[in-house]
Simulated assay, not measured.
Amino acid sequence: MGVIVYSCKTQQTTTTTTTETSAATANLSKEEILKKGEDLFTLKCGKCHRLPTPSEFKVDEWKPIMVRMAPKAKLNAEETNRILAYVNANAKK
C-alpha cells in the first residue's frame, strides 16, 4: 500500500523593481536611499546569516537573491527596493 500526497497550492513569486514609488522616497536623495538600503541590509538580512558583501555578486545576480530572500526577511516592497538599490550600487562590475 502506498500513499500519494498532492498539493494544489501555488507558489507566490514576489517581483520587485528598482523604481521607488512612495511619496516619502520621492523626497530622498540617492545617497539617502542607498544609506537606508545599507541599514536595512545590515539589520534585516544580517539577522539570520552572514552578510555577503554587495560586491560578491553582479547586479543580475542580486535580483533573484532578493526575490528569494525578501519574503523570508519579511521585507515590504519599499524595503526590498532600497536594499536592491544599495547592493546594485555596490555590486561586482
Rank of each mutant, 00 (worst) to 15 (best):
N88W: 01
I33Q: 15
E78K: 08
K47D: 05
L40K: 04
Y86G: 13
A70E: 01
T15V: 07
E78C: 06
K92F: 01
L28I: 08
L34I: 07
E20Q: 10
R82G: 00
E61W: 03
R82K: 09
E78G: 13
L34G: 04
M1H: 05
E38K: 14
A89F: 00
T19L: 06
L28R: 13
T21R: 09
K74N: 08
T53K: 11
H49W: 03
L34S: 08
V3I: 09
K93H: 15
A24N: 13
D39N: 07
K44E: 07
A91L: 03
T18L: 14
K92A: 04
V87G: 00
E31P: 00
I4P: 08
A77I: 06
V87K: 00
T53Q: 13
K72M: 12
L28V: 11
A77R: 03
C48Q: 09
Q12S: 10
T19R: 12
T13I: 02
A89G: 04
Y6N: 14
N90H: 03
L51V: 01
K9R: 09
K74P: 01
T18I: 12
M66R: 05
T17L: 09
A23E: 05
Q11C: 04
K72S: 11
I4M: 12
T42P: 06
T42A: 13
L84P: 05
V67I: 15
K47V: 02
F41S: 06
T16N: 12
N81Q: 08
A24K: 14
K35R: 06
M69C: 12
T21F: 07
P52H: 02
V59W: 10
A26M: 08
E78T: 15
P64I: 07
C8H: 10
H49E: 03
T42F: 15
E61F: 02
L51A: 02
R68I: 11
K74D: 04
I33N: 05
R68S: 15
H49R: 10
N27T: 10
T53I: 05
Y86L: 13
T25Y: 05
E20T: 11
A73N: 12
I33R: 09
A89D: 03
P71E: 03
N81P: 03
T21G: 12
M69T: 08
K36S: 13
P52A: 03
M66C: 05
V87E: 00
Q12E: 13
I65T: 14
T18W: 06
F57M: 13
T53R: 11
T15H: 09
K35A: 10
R82T: 02
E56C: 15
K72R: 10
T80A: 02
K44P: 03
E32P: 02
A85D: 02
K36T: 14
L28T: 13
C48A: 12
A24W: 08
N88S: 15
H49V: 09
D60Q: 15
Y86N: 04
T13F: 07
P71V: 02
N90G: 01
K47G: 03
A24Y: 06
S22A: 09
A24P: 06
T13H: 15
